[in-house]
């Protein structure tokens, strides 16, 4: 059962927590090396051409492609 909301539908500019990363190991590890892993806090900064998102995580601005968004699920931070 899915939890949270996919990043494609996550609100922009809101503090979020990543609750699930149902994506391949390689991009998951790449995102983790920027600090974006399950349990970490981040926010979506903007939409990009091509349907991706720019996320702000641990000081890094990371552009994430559209194909990953649905597999990255987040909840609004309390």
């Amino acid at each position: 059962m899915y939890v949270g909301v996919g990043l494609d539908r996550a609100p922009i500019g809101t503090a979020l927590t990543l609750v699930e990363a149902d994506i391949d190991a390689a991009p998951a590890h790449r995102l983790a090396s920027f600090g974006l892993r399950v349990g970490s806090g981040f926010s979506v900064l903007s939409r990009t051409a091509g349907g991706g998102r720019v996320v702000l995580v641990a000081g890094s601005r990371v552009a994430v492609g559209r194909s990953l968004l649905a597999g990255l699920r987040a909840e609004v931070r309390a």
Binding site: I23, P27, F34, R66
Partner: peptide, 10 residues
């Protein structure tokens, strides 16, 4: 095709 993950420098 591997998905886009790229850091945007300031």
């Amino acid at each position: 095709i591997e998905p886009l993950v790229i850091d945007l420098p300031a």
